[in-house]
Design a protein around this nucleic acid. Structure first.
Lengths: 119, 119
DNA sequence: ACTATATATGAACATATATTCAGGTGTTAA
DNA sequence: TTAACACCTGAATATATGTTCATATATAGT
């Protein structure tokens, strides 16, 4: 028929109304990136262990490293990541820094994550 | 001074009892890795957009790609990741596959993540 | 001032991961 | 059976990320 050639360069999407409707409710890219960075922070085994350990009690860097079996340096690097995401905070006592959780969301996030993973 | 060489290989940890106590309550490595993989899956902006779109309604691959502005191929690759984590499922209707959320945890996880990010 | 300790940091390296591109599979309809 | 379509997949590439190693900073004690 007559419109055989017309639709070549078009992005072909089957349900245009669905697309438009869903697009209208999408979150802003800026928020998407923040969310992604946040979950990315939780998505590393070293950091998971660190947070899990800190869920039990505050710990200094050395202890944290010993608990999870990683080097002081690696732990320090990761603490920086966790600090930047406001997941941990610290207090100084002499030359020792005691780190602790800075967000109680972590507990429920872990709980939910575990629920999903365990089933 | 002869003990300059002695203490090289020791892990120096300040609070040994803390370390032992916390270690006793640590989660198993296997679970740590599963948790990490799960959060890693949530830690990508493309996948966040996909999941967020699917929170609204089921969508076929084309529509999903159009909604988030990515290529069909990229979306397909990521759908595989989401399937492997049992976060999405699909049903076939002719040659079209309709994807939808396979885990309601996602909603609350997103909500909690947003709470943390927004504050 | 000097030393030891606790932690932080930068550079380098290795690994992981996301996207693109080209081609492949499976389904529908002519 | 042929073509068109919806989707998938593998290889290649580029980028991101985690760890190590060496070094730097900061605090406490001598």
């Amino acid at each position: 028929m007559r419109d055989e050639f017309l639709d070549r360069c078009e992005v072909q999407c089957i349900h245009e109304e669905s697309v438009i409707a869903v697009q209208k409710e999408m979150i802003k890219d800026e928020i998407v990136f923040e969310l992604a960075d946040f979950f990315k922070t939780l998505g590393d085994s070293t950091r998971i262990k660190m947070l899990y350990a800190l869920m039990q009690r505050e710990l200094c860097v050395c202890d944290l490293a010993a608990v999870i079996g990683a080097s002081d340096s690696a732990v320090s690097h990761q603490l920086r990541v966790l600090r930047s995401q406001k997941l941990v905070k610290f207090r100084r006592e002499g030359k020792i820094l005691y780190y602790s959780l800075d967000d109680e969301h972590v507990r429920s996030l872990f709980a939910q994550g575990l629920e999903h993973v365990m089933e």
